[in-house]
Amino acid sequence: MSTESLALPATTGTAPPERRLAGDLAIWVFICAELLAFAVFFVAYGVARARHVDMFNTGQLTLDRNAGALNTVLLITGSWFVVQAVARLRGGDPGGSAGRLLLALACGGGFLVVKVFEYKAKFALGISLSTDTFYMFYISLTFFHLMHVLLGMVILALLWNSLRRGPGPTTLSSLESGAAYWHMVDLVWIILFPLVYVMR
């Protein structure tokens, strides 16, 4: 919490610490592209909803808010573990870091399970992309997001594997990149949940 550990001989003590982006710049370019795609999707939802308020409100009431809230908790908990994984690797504890990644992966897995049950219930009612505009958006947005969760889990699994085999010089940067991506998936859901499940 203090700067005394920066035992640089030439430090005058006045230079502010360098601002630093965690992770590879390439992943941030990609995150921006993804955020843009979701932004367009969200705005499209808003526009479509404004044109069919009743249809959207009726459809929304049929959604499983408990599942949505549970999934929010799972995602933010997963993110919390990922933050801890990064901190542990920085602290020179790759084993602990790998453990936290496993916990995050478990949260992601929980998200998938909840989603599968949620979809199963909906599909059993014969709801599909072609049912109406609300369900089109509900399925499209959540499925598009779900695939991001899956991709995020693949990334975390790869990172876990490389941590387990012993970290190299680029492992921290890779972990930071993967973490940034995982948090992005979280960030999107934080908008998606109130928008699709709650806001009437």
């Binding site: 367009v40 479509a48 992309l129 089109m136 958006f137 499209s140």
Partner: peptide, 8 residues
């Protein structure tokens, strides 16, 4: 739905 996906 392609009208939405395609447009976006």
């Amino acid at each position: 739905y392609w009208q939405w996906w395609g447009s976006i």
